[in-house]
Design a protein around this nucleic acid. Structure first.
Length: 554
RNA sequence: GCGCCUGUAGCUCAGCCGGAUAGAGCAACGGACUUCUAAUCCGUAGGUCGCAGGUUCGAAUCCUGCCAGGCGUACCA
């Protein structure tokens, strides 16, 4: 609808120019918004004010010229007015809104989808938690954001791939092996000293016990390095299995699990380091190899190989991201914890050094989650190994509530996640508020069938009877949905959909409390049934993007 | 020190590529169930948009400086 109005305005401005009413041919794209105040109409534009300087005319006069040339062949505009310093306000006929329902009816579960992605390949990499411990609630937020962004982009015509990068190489994996081996020795009655930097959690004990059950005391007689490696591999595999299970339980499925170690095994890391060396963007200093990220806008150069010959995490990350583009992705999106934001400039540098554009790489930063129970913070120290895992949380509050709550904030705002609140089935808890709409409408449809009053055959004359203010409000809200999806895709902000759904739910509940759907007049009933069915479709559509269920009853 | 993020109603947050009188939920208070699910709705009240300048016809929104909180600033990941 908004786009239609924009078109009418642009055409009118062009016509005004051809007629000599507007001097300059410089016609900016009309920007149309929905005014906050109802008195300002259904839509308004500031185009006359924007054009004032280039046209060298007072805004209100420009507005007048545009209105004079406005063509409205479909008769959707009831009234226009020039207001304030030069706004043009549009008041629409109620009948202008009715076709929206037809569109939803026809598009069904594709309503709101678009082709802005034009089939371009895009990759979303998210979670990518080290396999050194179970996922915690912060990873859950990253998972919800990444998964939903992927859904939205796919809905908007991108070819999306979801990927999880497994950091299965390097020091932290070795530390994991050492931690397990120590606990294993302890189980065999050896006195041990357990260093602070080792992983403290109870799961380390469990893994050690499993190894003991499978292998007995055989590791005790092996060289330390071998034993550590065996423990590391065993533990990482086991933990990764748990991570997959937790994610799957949370409704997240990846297209690919990409191993960091594979980049070393295939020699990719060495290759890129040599390439950069030949290009002169990697140099040696004090025994280490440095990548000139400064030349690409970073504040200082970064080490890729340490002076004792170990590659850094950054080195494999360069190879990894290069590989992504070689797989044909035009755009790459990484979802990171906000505490990694300092890493962005060097990653952008790497992207550019590999011959790609900086804006082909985006990072979505996700702020931390404070886990609370009844307002009291829950201890969450990974080092001490005291935490509730994502699995525990999802188990306790349910997948729907967890996913929805993660998306009730802008991803860069810190989020308080209260376990008690998340379980509450009241309107403190927005998930149920939205799901309730779906259930209520399902109930209406069931009742209609029971009473044999379920004729919903499309009938323009029945739709035309939807003229109550609450009905028009509802249709207007439904009309906004495609725009919300588009902006959500463009900004990669999934919370826009969550907010939209809460708003749609609110408008629906208001309508529900004021009007009855199953009235005696068959045509009014048919029109209203079609209206609520459209609401139900959009609610389901939006919840599906969030991967939250749309229940038939509650 | 430098960089990034945040600061909007008592609380939790939207709005931020400039628009008209700044929004929602919760909490508070007062109402609405013989009806299609009260997990709902209606009403009242609540604000120096951190502070100070600047740009503009117009600033919560853009720019500068300051204040407060968080994070980062490794030959860690």
């Amino acid at each position: 609808m908004k786009q239609r109005i924009e078109k009418l305005i642009t055409n009118a401005a062009l016509a005004a120019h051809h007629n000599g009413d507007l001097a300059s041919s410089e016609i900016p794209d009309a920007e149309v918004e929905e005014p906050k105040a109802q008195a300002h109409g259904d839509f308004s534009t500031n185009i006359a004010m924007v054009m004032a300087s280039s046209q060298k005319m007072p805004p209100r006069k420009i507005a007048g010229a545009i209105i004079d040339h406005l063509k409205d062949p479909d008769g959707i505009i009831a009234k226009t007015e020039i207001a304030g310093p030069g706004f043009i306000n549009f008041f629409l006929e109620k009948s202008a809104w009715h076709p929206v329902l037809g569109k939803i009816h026809d598009a069904n579960d594709r309503y709101g989808s678009s082709d802005i992605g034009k089939g371009r390949k895009i990759q979303v990499e998210f979670v990518s938690s080290n396999p050194t411990g179970p996922l915690h609630i912060g990873h859950g937020r990253g998972a919800a954001v990444g998964d939903t962004v992927a859904n939205i982009l796919s809905f908007c015509g991108y070819e999306v791939q979801r990927e999880y990068y497994i950091n299965d190489s390097g020091r932290q994996i070795r530390t994991l092996g050492q931690s397990v081996l120590l606990r294993y020795k302890q189980l065999h009655g050896h006195p041990i000293e357990f260093p602070d930097q080792c992983y403290q959690g109870a799961y380390i004990h469990e893994i050690a016990a499993e190894i003991k059950a499978q292998k007995g005391d055989i590791l005790l007689s092996q060289p330390e390095d071998d034993a550590v490696l065996i423990c590391a591999r065993f533990a990482a595999e086991k933990i990764l299995r748990g991570i997959r299970e937790d994610l799957s339980f949370f409704g997240v499925e990846f297209d690919r699990w990409f191993s960091e170690q594979s980049l070393y095994d295939s020699g990719r890391v060495d290759t890129i380091i040599n390439e950069f060396r030949n290009q002169g963007i990697i140099y040696e200093k004090e025994g280490a190899l440095w990548f000139k990220t400064r030349e690409f806008g970073d504040e200082k150069d970064r080490v890729v190989v340490t002076n004792d010959g170990r590659t850094t995490y950054f080195a494999s990350d360069i190879a990894y991201h290069q590989d992504k583009y070689e797989r044909g992705f035009q755009r790459v999106i990484d979802v990171w914890g906000a505490d990694h934001h300092g890493y962005i400039p060097r990653m952008k540098a790497a992207i550019e050094a590999c011959g790609h554009k900086r804006d082909q790489f985006d990072v979505i930063l996700v702020q931390l989650v404070n886990l609370l129970r009844g307002g009291e913070p829950v201890a969450m120290s990974t080092r001490a190994g005291e935490f509730e895992t994502l699995g525990d949380v999802v188990n306790e509050v349910g997948r729907d509530a967890a996913r929805f709550i993660f998306l009730t904030r802008h991803h860069e705002s810190a989020l308080d996640f209260d376990l008690e609140l998340a379980k509450q089935k009241t309107n403190d808890n927005p998930v149920y508020y939205v799901q309730y709409v779906h259930a209520r409408i399902s109930s209406i449809v069931r009742k209609a069938k029971e009473r044999g009053k379920n004729n919903t055959a499309w009938d323009d004359t029945a739709i035309a009877l939807l003229v109550a203010p609450e009905e028009i409000d509802l249709i207007k809200t439904l009309a906004r949905y495609p725009e919300v999806i588009r902006s959500s895709a463009q900004t990669m902000e999934p919370h826009r959909i969550t907010f939209y759904l809460m708003n749609l739910a609110s408008v629906f509940h208001t309508y529900y409390n004021k009007h009855r759907v199953l009235v005696d007049d068959p045509r009014v009933r048919c029109g209203r049934l079609n209206l609520v069915l459209a609401v139900q479709k959009v609610i389901r559509n939006g919840l599906t993007l969030l991967n939250v269920s749309a229940p038939q009853e509650m």
